[in-house]
Design a protein around this nucleic acid. Structure first.
Lengths: 190, 190
DNA sequence: TCTCTTTCTTAAACTACTTTAAGTTTTTTG
DNA sequence: CAAAAAACTTAAAGTAGTTTAAGAAAGAGA
């Protein structure tokens, strides 16, 4: 049940069996149906989610009423509205399963208790966040310096399975282009 | 000398006087001239920098030879190439002072020793990174859903001093538009 | 204070992408 | 398995920005 998350944590910090048992007692496994939401705009975000299996998207509804995909989360990624989780204010984001998925739920209260009893977990999350942060800076670099076509091609080259895995209109939104334009790009050559 | 960084850390975690003394012994204060680099592309990134006074930019040179500003860092921000710092590989980024500045240098080795002796610092950086990461996600949302003009106006409204503080061509690059276009936007109304 | 360098401005021609609208295909559900 | 809903395609007209080029203004070193 928890093997994937424990393996992931162990890639960053050591864990003894007591700590693993404590983690197992405070974490929660949850099956999520396709299109089911873990968080909706207006709600208070109460947990951080580790994707054990499946795929999620973090998105929001813009002023013009369109869905904007901000981030995807697949196996071994954490996904949540960090700002909302930490502030306790109603979230502006949605977190939704793109396909039938399994997550490990880390509730806010469990998180506090775990950070207290397993200080190594602070180290784990620090490192996870360092990576997530620099990935976003790299992404901003791509957004500014590559055309939609170049970004799509790069994505297709580096993550061909992923491009097939999510609906095209979600991928278009993530890349910051319209689904019509992405459709045209695909038609050009494939 | 270290008062600004100690005050910042105390906003997140408590520090006793021994810990403060240890920090002071392992941190280093450095004056940086305008246009001086803390890091250049091709070098190995060896430290994380806390801006005590002044302003820095994290940028890179694109394939086409243009400077692309990825991030600014002003007072109370940490700035570095996290990916390079952690991987030990040559960096693709430049970190340069936009104005005469003072930084507190946290070297890689000092960081390891400090994390070891003051576990609370892991907690501090985890929280700093949570904020930095969600700020980048919000920024991506703005990039995709606001025109250059809207982003410039919002920035002018929220951070009018900052807009005056950095050269316009750097601000344009940060906003993902050309300096010519920003100049035109400013001329429209001010 | 003069000169050199850096930064900012203006404007015309161009392009990557959006918008709109309508039709087609695929997937989901009772 | 049929009907409805969701996802994808095509194409024409429009726009937010870039590119290029040249000149003007401001800043900084000697």
């Amino acid at each position: 049940m928890f093997s994937s998350i424990l393996a992931h944590i162990r890639r960053f910090v050591p864990l003894n069996s007591e700590e693993e048992a404590l983690l197992a007692s405070l974490l929660e496994v949850r099956e999520v149906k396709k299109k089911e939401h873990l968080l909706q705009a207006g709600e208070i975000c109460k947990a951080n989610y580790f994707v054990a299996k499946g795929c999620f998207r973090l998105y929001l509804i813009t002023d013009k009423g369109a869905e904007q995909v901000i981030q995807f989360g697949i196996e071994d990624w954490w996904i949540t509205d960090y700002a909302g989780l930490k502030s306790g204010k109603p979230s502006g984001f949605y977190v939704q399963a793109v396909e039938p998925s399994t997550v490990v739920v880390l509730n806010k209260e469990a998180e506090e208790e775990l950070f207290d009893k397993i200080p190594q977990l602070e180290r784990y999350f620090r490192q996870v966040l360092e990576r997530a942060y620099s990935a976003q800076l790299t992404r901003i670099h791509y957004i500014f310096n590559m055309t939609g076509e170049e970004q799509y091609k790069l994505m297709n080259k580096h993550y061909p399975e992923f491009v097939q895995r999510v609906p095209q209109y979600m991928l278009a939104s993530f890349l910051g282009i319209t689904p019509e334009f992405l459709s045209m790009l695909r038609a050009k050559k494939d």
